[in-house]
Computed example of a mutant assay.
Amino acid sequence: MVGRAYGAGPGWVIEARGELDQDTLAPLEDALASAAGSHPLVVLDAGAITFGDSSFLNMLLRLHRTTTLRIAAPAEQLVRLFQLTGADTVLAIHPDVRDALGTPA
């Protein structure tokens, strides 16, 4: 599910929450693709995502090729998914949105 989307500092932040799989991914994918078309930096606030499957991961990797994508505050399940697949060496993962935007505390 897609939550708030807003401009912040140099980028565009999109909040997502809940379980993201092939059946629920389309609204988030549309929001991220739209943001990528208008903003050079897109931050996915993943703090409220409780589950992501391989279709979610593939969508992130595809989007990563089209814009500067940063993932903020992923829960442990997502961190494990990124580590097990090696996506953590490709995707920019940050502890929080502020860090992902590169803005000072």
Rank of each mutant, 00 (worst) to 15 (best):
M1F: 07
M1D: 10
V2L: 15
V2W: 12
G3C: 06
G3T: 01
R4C: 13
A5K: 15
A5T: 13
Y6H: 14
G7M: 11
A8F: 10
G9F: 15
G9Y: 15
P10C: 09
G11L: 08
G11E: 09
G11W: 11
G11K: 10
W12M: 14
W12I: 00
W12E: 04
V13L: 02
I14G: 00
I14M: 06
E15R: 14
E15T: 11
G18M: 06
E19R: 13
D21N: 07
D21W: 00
Q22E: 13
D23R: 13
T24P: 08
L25W: 08
L28R: 01
A31D: 02
L32P: 08
L32E: 06
A33Y: 13
S34A: 10
A35V: 07
A35G: 06
A35Y: 08
A36F: 01
S38I: 04
S38M: 06
S38T: 13
S38A: 14
H39Q: 13
H39N: 15
P40V: 05
P40L: 08
L41S: 01
L41N: 04
L41E: 01
V42D: 04
V42W: 11
V42L: 12
V42R: 09
V43F: 08
V43L: 05
L44I: 03
L44V: 02
L44C: 11
D45P: 03
D45F: 03
G47S: 15
A48R: 15
A48T: 14
A48Y: 07
T50V: 06
T50I: 01
F51K: 00
G52M: 06
G52H: 01
D53L: 06
S54Q: 06
F56G: 07
L57V: 12
L57F: 13
N58E: 03
L60H: 10
L60N: 05
L61A: 14
L61N: 09
R62G: 04
R62H: 05
L63V: 08
H64S: 06
R65Y: 01
T66I: 12
T67H: 02
T67Q: 03
T68H: 13
T68A: 11
L69T: 01
R70P: 02
I71S: 05
I71Q: 08
I71A: 04
A72E: 14
A72W: 11
A72L: 11
A73K: 03
A73L: 04
A73Q: 09
A73H: 07
A73N: 12
P74S: 10
A75G: 02
A75L: 12
E76L: 12
Q77D: 13
L78Y: 09
V79P: 01
R80S: 05
R80A: 08
F82R: 07
Q83Y: 13
L84G: 04
L84C: 05
T85A: 09
A87P: 03
A87S: 07
A87K: 04
D88A: 09
D88P: 00
D88G: 03
D88N: 12
T89V: 14
V90W: 12
L91K: 07
A92I: 04
A92Y: 00
A92T: 11
I93V: 15
I93F: 08
H94I: 00
P95W: 02
P95H: 04
P95A: 00
P95G: 02
V97G: 06
D99P: 00
D99S: 14
A100F: 01
L101P: 05
L101E: 07
G102W: 12
T103W: 08
T103G: 04
A105D: 14
